[in-house]
Write a protein that binds this DNA or RNA. Structure first.
Length: 686
RNA sequence: GCCUCCUUAGCUCAGUUGGUUAGAGCACCCGACUCAUAAUCGGUAGGUCCUGUGUUCAAGUCACAGAGGAGGCACCA
């Protein structure tokens, strides 16, 4: 056994603007498995995390809900922690970036960087909302795309034609917050001079701190040159004020990673640990950050540069993972695959998901897929059919025939089999250590197969009927129980709750990795109770249905995609109501019920479907930008609503004689209007 | 537009520096068994290694081109 190591582990901080979903959980489960593994191995290991609580989206959402940001983030933090607890994520401490510790470290780091001349100032031009008196991030400005004239596009790029531009290029820009026309205004911002650390970072990224895939990716970034990082935001902003400045705040991404330190500091205060042992410049302890591949830039460049420049230690390693897809596709609200942690917990066992993720996770940054059918099969077969079954099929004999007592003496064959299980201990540990969980799970399941084969070979149910074979029977089932104990020990980082239940069944007080070196002899076990039940296909369907329901219930305030990448995305705020109009203006619009008599894709168009609509008075040809959300064959025969008197528009693909009505942000999330039963083509909509 | 990565059995994935008949688990099918949560054990079957061209004595593995997918850059971080 090597010397106990001192280890700090973190997962990326979830943003306090939305619920935890299965995509987040890949990371927390991956990290938690590693943390539990290290603890089982006898190391001194601390796993800390926190809510990332600052920034414009949080400020605005709090306003929209009529509460203070502090109230909002307190509520979200509670929700997050409930979800994490539900999945048995065992943080040693969970904190918030809106905390005194974080303010202290953010300020300290900033001041040290400033003292070393790593902070510069530059005046930039930015859009400003005159009604709300605040500067607007690009994503909070919408307008017409200067290139393709698509309306309602964000300030940074056009979702219709893919063009990128600056918000000042938008035609008819509007603030997403107030609807006002923004004005351009100059403002002075503070920048962190990342380029000062160019050589140091180049070296650091190739010293084994990163996965090779990532180190290579970073080389591309080095080639294009490191730019200074804008770290200030103007008031009003929910965050920490920058010392020595007026009405300037730290950008949320500056104090987010510092939250790792803050959380650990809070843990130190609680437990009497020495913070500098872990974060001081010359600390010889280990520090690991688990993150999603979307936030590599922040963690592999800004973060070590900030730490180094401020005279703190840099991380031992950064471990990035890929995204989660569900049934091979990105999580989608309309398909019900946007599954919240809570929704999952309402229907399924968290340990099942932990196992499935473990069975798919390796040390690389490839995306992993949650294939629901495979999920059920894999979990049922591996965990219930193989592992738990071993205990289940042996325990009855032990309890009924031997009063729950395991045998004392083992034959050479039994000893050899047990030893063969122990022989795998270090190689499985090595796989956990290297985060090759896939291989670890395979190896453990191969052992489970061996255990089942042994039971089959010795056939305790046959021995039980032969009075002179009681000793053989006793050994067979006792060894079965012992092998189960080894397996559940190996699986304990992945299945903490099942391990705990197993420990109770086996009457064990400890489930450390090394405990298995001493087999259970003459030991009393309890009556067996099912440790886990199977996943039913029906339950999965129910969960998917519930997910769709969740989306409907809280469509306007859901979060998107990955961990933190969407921080600046104001998807949470519904668009403001447009300028008031007269009834006459409304009456001009001739809306009609239309039957879709034909729908086909337009080969050269990315987003368009060509629809033929029957409105009673004849047929109309309409091009609609809904290809991403609808399969044309499924539209035929449906009724919807169209603007019948819209001036026809010549498009590259033909004449479009009207417009169908649909709601939603775009992509998969587009929803055609559908009249209630009874409406027939041609009816006017009032 | 430029760049990187991925594509192996119905599903999920292994395939070492190019070297015999390409592997595993699950599912399927057949047989055995009945201790066990219809679990387990044995066996059969299942592959144009995305496509094409090339390098080589030899290509899943190397090169080039193409298709599909993911991501990055150009804008932002």
């Amino acid at each position: 056994m090597p010397q106990p190591r001192k280890i700090v582990i973190t997962s990326a901080l979830p943003y306090a603007n939305g619920p935890i979903h299965l995509g987040h959980l890949v990371e927390y489960i991956q990290t938690d498995i590693w943390s539990r593994f290290q603890k089982m191995r006898g190391h001194e290991c601390y796993y800390v995390c926190a809510d990332d609580a600052h920034g414009t989206p949080i400020m605005l959402r709090a306003q929209a809900e009529g509460i203070t940001p502090e109230t909002l983030i307190a509520r979200i933090s509670k929700e997050h922690q409930q979800d994490f607890a539900g999945f048995n994520i065992g943080f040693d401490h969970y904190h918030s970036t809106h905390s005194v510790e974080n303010q202290y470290f953010a300020t300290t780091i900033y001041e040290r960087l400033k003292a070393q001349n790593h902070i510069s100032r530059k005046t930039i031009k930015q859009f400003f909302d005159p009604e709300k008196s605040m500067f607007l991030p690009d994503r909070f400005i919408k307008g017409t795309c200067p290139k393709c004239k698509a309306t309602d596009q964000y300030g940074d790029n056009c979702e219709a034609c893919g063009a990128t531009y600056s918000p000042t290029d938008l035609i008819d820009p509007k603030s997403v917050i107030s609807g006002a026309t923004p004005i351009e205004k100059e403002t002075e911002h503070l920048f962190f001079e990342l380029a000062h650390f160019n050589d140091e970072l180049k070296a650091w990224t190739h010293q084994g701190h990163l996965q090779t895939q990532i180190a290579n990716k970073l080389d591309e970034w080095f080639e294009s040159g490191l730019r200074a990082w804008d770290i200030s935001r103007d008031a009003p902003y929910f965050g920490f004020e920058i010392p020595g400045e007026k009405d300037k705040f730290f950008y949320v991404w500056l104090d987010a990673p510092i939250g790792y330190m803050a959380s650990f500091k809070a843990l130190c205060d609680r437990k009497g640990l020495d913070f500098d042992d872990y974060w001081g410049k010359d600390a010889d302890t280990e520090l690991y950050h688990f993150i999603g591949k979307d936030i590599i830039y922040f963690h592999a460049l800004f973060w070590p540069a900030m730490l180094s420049g401020a005279n703190f230690r840099t991380p031992s390693a950064i471990y990035a993972h890929g995204f989660l897809t569900i049934d091979g596709q990105k999580m989608s609200k309309s398909r019900g695959t946007f599954i919240m942690a809570k929704t999952y917990l309402d229907h399924l066992n968290p340990e099942h998901l932990r196992y499935y993720f473990a069975a798919k996770l390796n040390s690389r940054i490839d995306d992993i897929d949650l294939n629901l059918e495979d999920f059920a099969q894999r979990v049922n077969s591996d965990l219930i059919g193989k592992v738990v079954n071993i205990a289940s099929r042996c325990a009855g004999f032990v309890v009924k025939k031997f009063d729950g007592k395991l045998c004392e003496d083992w034959s050479p064959i039994a000893l050899a089999l047990y030893q063969s299980f122990l022989d795998k201990s270090e190689s499985i540990a090595e796989l956990y250590e290297r985060r090759e969980y896939v291989q670890a799970m395979r190896d453990i399941m191969a052992l489970a197969d061996k255990a089942n084969e042994y039971i089959d070979d010795t056939a305790p149910w046959v021995l039980a009927k032969q009075p002179n074979q009681q000793a053989a029977l006793h050994e067979s089932v006792s060894l079965g129980i012992n092998l189960f104990r080894v397996l559940i020990t190996y699986l304990a980082p992945v299945l903490p709750d099942t391990a705990l239940k197993s420990a109770d069944f086996l009457q064990l007080t400890s489930l450390q990795w090394r405990d298995i070196e001493q087999p259970l002899v003459g030991h009393i076990i309890k009556k067996f109770k099912p440790l886990m039940t199977r996943i039913e296909a029906e339950t999965l369907i129910k969960m998917m249905d519930a997910s769709k329901g969740d989306i409907a219930a809280q469509a306007p305030k859901s979060t998107l995609g990955s961990t933190e990448a969407t921080k600046a995305n104001p998807a949470s705020a519904p668009d403001p109501v447009a300028t008031e109009i007269e009834f006459d203006d409304f009456a001009k619009i001739d809306l009609r019920i239309a039957k879709i008599v034909n729908a086909e894709t337009v080969p050269e168009a990315n987003k368009l479907l060509k629809l033929t609509l029957d409105i009673g008075l004849g047929q109309r040809q309409v091009f609609a930008g809904i290809k991403s959300a609808y399969d044309p064959s499924k539209l035929i025969g449906k009724h919807t609503v169209m603007v019948a008197n819209l001036k026809p528009r010549k498009m590259r693909f033909g004449l479009s004689e009207g417009m169908v009505l649909a709601a939603g942000p775009g992509g998969k999330d587009l929803f055609l209007l559908n009249p209630d039963d009874g409406a027939t083509p041609g009816m006017r909509v009032n």
